[in-house]
Design a protein around this nucleic acid. Sequence first.
DNA 1: AGTTTACTAAACGATCGGTCTAATATCCGG
DNA 2: CCGGATATTAGACCGATCGTTTAGTAAACT
Lengths: 211, 211
Amino acid sequence: MPDPTPIRRGPGRPPKRIDDRLETREALIRCGIEVLTEKGFTATGIDAVLKRIGVPKGSFYHYFESKEAFGLEVVDSYAAYFARKLDRWFLDDSRQPLARLAAFVDDAKAGMARHGFRRGCLIGNLGQEMSALPETYRDRLEAVFLDWQARLAKCLVLARTRGDIAAEADCERLAAYFWIGWEGAVLRARLMRSETALDIFAQGFIGGLPR
Amino acid sequence: MPDPTPIRRGPGRPPKRIDDRLETREALIRCGIEVLTEKGFTATGIDAVLKRIGVPKGSFYHYFESKEAFGLEVVDSYAAYFARKLDRWFLDDSRQPLARLAAFVDDAKAGMARHGFRRGCLIGNLGQEMSALPETYRDRLEAVFLDWQARLAKCLVLARTRGDIAAEADCERLAAYFWIGWEGAVLRARLMRSETALDIFAQGFIGGLPR
DNA sequence: AGTTTACTAAACGATCGGTCTAATATCCGG
DNA sequence: CCGGATATTAGACCGATCGTTTAGTAAACT
């Protein structure tokens, strides 16, 4: 549906609309998530983002200090979005712990299919691009991975106390293992344009858990 | 060590040396492997490759039709190089099958460390970049993965006949699982600049094999 | 009314992949 | 040993695109 109150664009200060500034900023970030998730940071020009929102190029540096700063905000926003998603699945008391993981995987499969397997994982994309990225990104990206790891580890601990996995299992390490491999699965799923890689990895991981 | 017979560079037809044309061409490809393995395709300019070999820009298009064609040759060359490496490890009769896989992993760890964790896997790099790459690349990259998968599967079959893994194990699928996750491990190792991710994945994989 | 604020249009310099031309040194047929 | 044909270099050059800067305009605020 088209925006019911289209934002006037032209030179000069725009008419007052309280949340206008935030709206534009956040629209840019939201669009940045989509585009960077698909094409990565280096291969994406800011024009591509701006065009899609209808913001003129000259305005970009009014909202963001640089492309680098923009990217960092996109990462933060994506991390927050993904953390919410993980909580939705990993804290879902209506499912057994390991079934929650499977449910997350199914959701991810559906998500990738919905976008024609063009979009991957933003953090993985940028991680792969690190050598062409400002060094600022490195710690931020790694921190996101560690956050995901912690959330999954909690879920695995639950499975362990239930006896679904071995009592001596190192849940933190298992969680690390999952995200390491998961990024590879997403990469491959995009290359093959099929859910197969996600399936193979997920089943391999769950099937290989210590019992 | 410096090249004992440096290639003369200057205008005019070079002296006849049967393999001279190949030398320059192959030097470009070899350098392409290094650079693309480190920075990927999109983020790498042709000049970066040319500068390192001392070949002027005008010469590039004498040897290659385009950057795209060049990249494909680099992929082929890398695939051949990596296939030899896999054979060296996976067909090493002095080791038990699963120990061969572990040896490959150790070798990869040492290799990544030697280059300061700046270089990753060329195929994985380009795979992640697919959405910004000519569509020509897709099948080629996937074919390389399938080749690696077949080589590892053979090794796993050996392990199965020895009874090291369960008789009902699907070696082809396990091999697919390995390479899917391995790419994620390489990605993460580069991000963290540490072998940890490779270790966690390799141990997780081998430890999770059906017994 | 005058200043401040919010935003944009246009241009800038760098770099990209790719082309083109001129120059040059060797090869090869006589 | 001469004289094309050929292989290669040298690097200026092109149009496109990149991230970024600047100068200016119009509404808001005082």
